[in-house]
């Protein structure tokens, strides 16, 4: 990676805004956790919030959004396989 490639990286302002969004999402997660009336809806809602936080860190802090697609492919391959492992094991052990 040369210096020109880092020039398209976000500014500190965006990094701090991202941190605020991450904190807010975490606060929402914790708040939702204590709302017992949500019942089973809690699981998809918390999952979506968690995935959103994961994606924010990967795209903004790890700069995947701003860098070459090859890095995205390298990481996504592992991530897709990892997700497949989780669902395969859960199916195999009759979790569902």
């Amino acid at each position: 990676m040369n210096k020109e490639e880092t020039s398209n990286h976000p500014t500190p302002k965006i990094y701090i805004s991202t941190a605020l969004i991450l904190s807010l999402l975490t606060a929402i997660e914790i708040g939702i956790f204590y709302i017992t009336s949500l019942g089973y809806w809690m699981i998809p809602i918390l999952s979506i919030l968690s995935i959103a936080k994961f994606a924010l860190v990967v795209m903004v802090y790890m700069h995947l959004k701003y860098e070459t697609k090859i890095f995205t492919i390298m990481f996504l391959t592992g991530l897709i396989l990892a997700t497949a492992i989780v669902f395969a094991l859960m199916t195999l052990f009759r979790f569902f």
């Binding site: 390298m74 990481f75 592992g78 979790f95």
Partner: peptide, 23 residues
């Protein structure tokens, strides 16, 4: 490139531990 490949493989490592916890 190697670091990204390593992080991808480490995802699988943690996925297997999380799946074991869940099952």
């Amino acid at each position: 490139l190697l670091m990204w490949a390593f992080l991808g493989s480490d995802c699988m490592f943690f996925a297997s531990l999380i799946a074991t916890y869940l099952v």
